[in-house]
Design a binder for these strands. Structure first.
Length: 465
RNA sequence: GGCGGCAUAGCCAAGUGGUAAGGCAUGGGCCUGCAAAGCCCUGAUCCCCGGUUCGAAUCCGGGUGCCGCCUCCA
């Protein structure tokens, strides 16, 4: 397994801290709104990484947090008249629903910020004890960036001179110092702590939860891999790393991985730009697996420019996998180790070279169709093929749906029945060689967006894009 | 201004020294009553200039263009 470390900017052979085990932590969502395609991309990338590591035999501890307390959640609660807990609960459920739809498996651990306040208090206390943090008169506690000689080493910034746009607080020792704890005295949402009522700083959450739930203890690093979107490298991950480094005797992560952005028209998709494309809306028009296939189709480190034409091209590519599945429908075989699995994992093991993996899948499909044309009854071949397809489902996370249902995405039962009836009528017409009638029915179906295909085992139909 | 990324056929996109994977679209063939599906065939010398090398899309230097981080952000 090779991984590109986005801090050292080099691809390295991956060696886990503990033989046979991997700890992976990814920054999860702040649950104040629905997930957009950028959230989906990030979740998909690390879901794929986790699947690949597992397929390679590692036992993976995969943690992804839920930030369920934050100014944005408070604002949303105020705007809607709901409580922050209700907002957080609502959008956590929405997040889970959307992630499930695109085949992102639930993480091993999903710690919530509000349930980890004591872990954060512990870390703040350690930082205070070691003089890496200080308290100002209103009760806020700040991290002293100047006290960490390695601060800015993660994001490769020379000095904090350019880090001047953080909020101005006169009592801060340095402009770059960031809040660990915000004291609350006005009765708004707060949590009890040894430092009085208040709320934790965002950067602190991840460090504290990693230390509490994931860290293996006293090695050189707390965890193997820390992941997230490229926009988190600075300041979020820089600050996380500083907190962990100063509060404990270890660095935060042995490897850092950052995924590129989803862009629209070449510009980063973000809430602040107002060009967000919500996953739940995309899911109304497209099968979740199609979105998974599409969003994973290019290398994770590059930016991903979303557009519907490419999405349709991806859908057509995935369609081919499902047509092959139709040809094998109902067949099963005991899984065996295949050469395909080895080459697929080799491709993905090279810093998740998905393009290469997709090419292997395309080639598998073409050769399988060819082989099935020549000899549909070759049992040994079918066993190998079924095993290869099972590998695709397990590692890539797509291809697991019923192939007939896949091609009926979005149709209601009445429409399906209507189509089935027409197909039967057409078959009857064909039987008596009334081609004018059968072609007329085919045209009628085409007008409904339905394509039909005659095969040796019967006539099948598909919805067209 | 500081730091970083990207530029490969109509489109998407692999490929870090030896003469360009894969997909979508296009055109052709086989198959088909005709189609669809499927299979096969079909296209680029890799942004520009210079350099290193027997040899570079791949390394170095200089340009041009686009994007991102530096503020919450996947």
């Amino acid at each position: 397994m090779y991984i590109f470390d986005s801090v050292k900017k080099t691809k390295y052979k991956f060696e886990s801290l503990v033989e046979g085990k991997v700890s992976l932590y990814v920054c999860g969502p702040t649950v104040y709104d629905d997930a957009h395609l950028g959230h989906a991309k990030s979740a998909l990338v690390f879901d794929l990484l986790r699947r690949v590591l597992e397929a390679k035999g590692y036992e993976v501890l995969f943690a992804r947090n839920i930030t369920d307390i934050d100014d944005k959640i408070i604002n949303k609660a105020r705007d809607t008249g709901l409580s922050t807990a209700q907002i957080a609960e609502q959008f956590t459920a929405a997040y889970h629903r959307d992630m499930t739809a695109i085949g992102v498996r639930p993480p091993t651990l999903e710690p919530k910020a509000t349930e980890s306040i004591d872990a954060m208090s512990d870390m703040i206390q350690k930082l205070l004890d070691k003089n890496h943090a200080y308290r100002i008169s209103n009760g806020d506690i700040y991290f002293d960036t100047a006290s960490d000689k390695n601060y800015l080493s993660l994001s490769n910034r020379q000095s904090s001179e350019n880090v001047s746009r953080v909020e101005k607080v006169s009592e801060k020792r340095h402009e770059a110092d960031f809040a660990l704890w915000k004291a609350v005295n006005d009765g708004s949402v707060s949590f009890d702590s040894p430092f009085g009522p208040g709320r934790p700083g965002w950067h602190l959450e991840c460090s504290a939860m990693i230390e509490r739930y994931v860290s293996s203890g006293e090695g050189k690093y707390a965890i193997d891999i820390h992941g997230g979107g490229a926009d988190l490298l600075f300041p979020h991950h820089e600050n996380e790393a500083a907190q962990t480094r100063c509060a404990t005797n270890h660095e935060l992560a042995a490897y850092w991985m950052h995924n590129g952005f989803v862009t629209i028209g070449g510009e980063k998709m973000s809430k602040s730009l107002g060009n967000s494309f919500f996953l739940k809306d995309a899911l109304k028009a497209y099968n979740g697996e199609v979105l998974r296939f599409y969003l994973l189709s290019t290398h994770y480190r590059g930016d991903f420019n979303f557009n519907e034409e490419d999405l349709i091209a991806s859908k057509r590519r995935l369609d081919r996998l499902y047509r092959l599945k139709k040809r094998l429908f109902g067949l099963s075989a005991a899984p065996i180790e295949t050469e395909f699995k080895k080459t697929l994992l080799d491709a993905l093991g090279d810093d998740l070279n998905v393009s290469k993996a997709y090419a292997l899948i395309d080639e598998l499909i073409a050769s399988a169709n060819d082989a099935l044309d020549r000899d549909p009854k070759d049992k040994a071949y079918r066993q190998v093929l079924l095993s290869s397809l099972a590998t695709i489902e397990e590692v890539m996370g797509f291809g697991s749906q019923n192939p007939y249902a896949y091609f009926q995405f979005g149709l209601d039962e009445a429409t399906k029945e209507r189509i089935d009836t027409l197909v039967i009528q057409r078959t009857e017409a064909k039987k008596i060689k009334d081609f004018a009638a059968s072609d007329a029915i085919r045209d009628e179906l085409a007008a409904m967006g339905i394509a039909i295909m005659d095969t040796p085992s019967g006539t099948f139909w598909e919805i067209r894009d």
